[in-house]
Computed example of a mutant assay.
Amino acid sequence: MTDATASKELIITRTFDAPRELVYRAFTDPDQIVQWFGPVGFSVPRDTVEIDARVGGHQRLTMVSDDDPNMTSPVDATFTEVIENELLVGTEEWEGIPGQQEGGSMYMRIEFHDEGGKTRLVLRQGLYTEEVADMAREGWESSFTKLDTLLVD
């Protein structure tokens, strides 16, 4: 993928009906992330998850298709900025993403804003091609629907 085609930043804003400490923990606690991460139709086996939420720490996990366990999507990210309950910033190496050059990387910034007992989350990720940005948006929205359910329980 060339720089000319990788020009789309994905931005998603979503409000969760839970305090930001709980939403932040859902992103940094391995036992919680396996319950919601990945679009519907994908699972994250607990034994694939490692999270060390500090500058220089990492997030590693593997999404696995429920229909075809041979279809996997690993996540290998390094945190470059962490403010507990407020901010997670990092870079992610990818492989096996259709339309993306193998061995590439992208950035991600997740902000957690207090909205009177609720949490406004702002996610920025990219850069993507238009097609891949649309797929990533669908994946995040599906994941966030699962996160809504986890936060209510």
Rank of each mutant, 00 (worst) to 15 (best):
Met1Ile: 11
Met1Pro: 03
Thr2Trp: 03
Ala6Lys: 04
Ser7Tyr: 13
Leu10His: 04
Leu10Phe: 09
Ile11Gln: 06
Ile11Ala: 04
Thr13Asn: 13
Arg14Asp: 04
Arg14Ala: 07
Phe16Tyr: 04
Pro19Gln: 14
Arg20Ala: 01
Tyr24Cys: 05
Ala26Val: 07
Pro30Asp: 13
Pro30Trp: 12
Asp31Phe: 01
Gln32Thr: 01
Ile33Thr: 03
Val34Asn: 08
Val34Leu: 14
Gln35Leu: 10
Trp36Gln: 06
Trp36Met: 09
Pro39Thr: 12
Val40Asn: 11
Phe42Asn: 12
Phe42Gln: 05
Val44Glu: 00
Pro45Gly: 05
Asp47Pro: 05
Asp47Ile: 06
Asp52Cys: 01
Ala53Gln: 10
Val55Phe: 08
Val55Arg: 12
Gly56Thr: 02
Gly56Gln: 01
Gly57Glu: 09
Gln59Ile: 01
Leu61Val: 04
Thr62Asn: 15
Met63Ala: 06
Val64Tyr: 12
Asp66Gln: 15
Asp67Thr: 06
Asp67Cys: 13
Asp67Trp: 12
Asn70Ser: 15
Asn70Leu: 09
Met71Ala: 15
Ser73Trp: 08
Pro74Gly: 02
Pro74Ser: 11
Phe79Ala: 07
Val82Tyr: 12
Leu87Ser: 07
Leu87Val: 02
Gly90Arg: 00
Thr91Asn: 15
Glu93Ser: 07
Trp94Asn: 05
Gln100His: 09
Gln101Lys: 13
Ser105Arg: 08
Ile110Lys: 02
Gly117Asn: 07
Arg120Asn: 04
Leu121Gly: 06
Val122Arg: 14
Arg124Pro: 06
Gln125Lys: 10
Gln125Phe: 03
Tyr128Pro: 01
Thr129Gly: 05
Glu130Pro: 05
Asp134Val: 09
Asp134Glu: 15
Asp134Tyr: 08
Ala136His: 01
Glu138Thr: 10
Ser142Lys: 11
Ser143Asp: 04
Phe144Thr: 04
Lys146His: 04
Asp148Glu: 06
Leu150Asp: 10
Leu150Phe: 07
Leu150His: 14
Leu151Ser: 11
Val152Leu: 11
Asp153Gln: 12
